[in-house]
Simulated scan of single mutants.
Amino acid sequence: MAEMSYRTALVTGATSGLGRGLALWLARRGLRVFAAGRRVSQLQALAAEAQAAGATVEPVELDVTATDATLERIRALDGECGGLDLVVANAGVGGVTHAKRLQWERVKAIIDTNVTGAAATLSAVLPQMVERRRGHVVGVSSLAAFRGLAGHGAYSASKAFLATFMESLRVDLSGTGVRVTCIYPGFVKSELTEKNNFPMPFLMETEAAVDRMGNGILRGEGELYFPWQLALPSRLLKVVPNPLFDAAARRFR
Score class of each variant (00 low, 15 high):
70 T>I: 06
119 A>L: 09
84 L>C: 05
104 W>T: 03
67 T>W: 06
144 A>P: 13
111 I>C: 08
64 V>M: 09
132 R>Y: 12
113 T>H: 10
118 A>P: 01
131 E>L: 10
95 G>E: 12
137 V>E: 02
93 V>Q: 05
85 D>L: 04
152 H>S: 15
57 V>R: 03
105 E>L: 01
143 L>A: 10
94 G>P: 04
109 A>C: 05
81 C>L: 12
94 G>T: 00
140 V>G: 07
126 L>P: 04
76 A>I: 11
133 R>I: 00
113 T>D: 09
75 R>E: 15
98 H>R: 13
56 T>E: 15
158 S>N: 09
131 E>Y: 10
104 W>L: 00
109 A>M: 05
157 A>M: 03
92 G>V: 03
112 D>V: 03
88 V>E: 03
143 L>F: 12
142 S>W: 10
135 G>N: 03
117 G>K: 07
110 I>M: 03
119 A>D: 07
99 A>G: 13
98 H>G: 10
155 Y>I: 04
63 D>M: 04
155 Y>W: 00
113 T>M: 08
60 V>L: 15
124 A>N: 01
100 K>D: 15
152 H>T: 14
136 H>W: 10
91 A>V: 07
62 L>I: 07
126 L>T: 10
141 S>D: 01
57 V>C: 11
154 A>K: 04
105 E>V: 04
102 L>I: 06
104 W>R: 05
79 G>Y: 14
142 S>G: 02
88 V>W: 00
77 L>M: 14
68 D>T: 13
54 G>W: 12
90 N>W: 01
57 V>A: 06
82 G>C: 11
121 T>I: 03
81 C>T: 12
60 V>I: 13
99 A>Y: 15
149 L>G: 13
64 V>T: 12
142 S>F: 08
119 A>H: 06
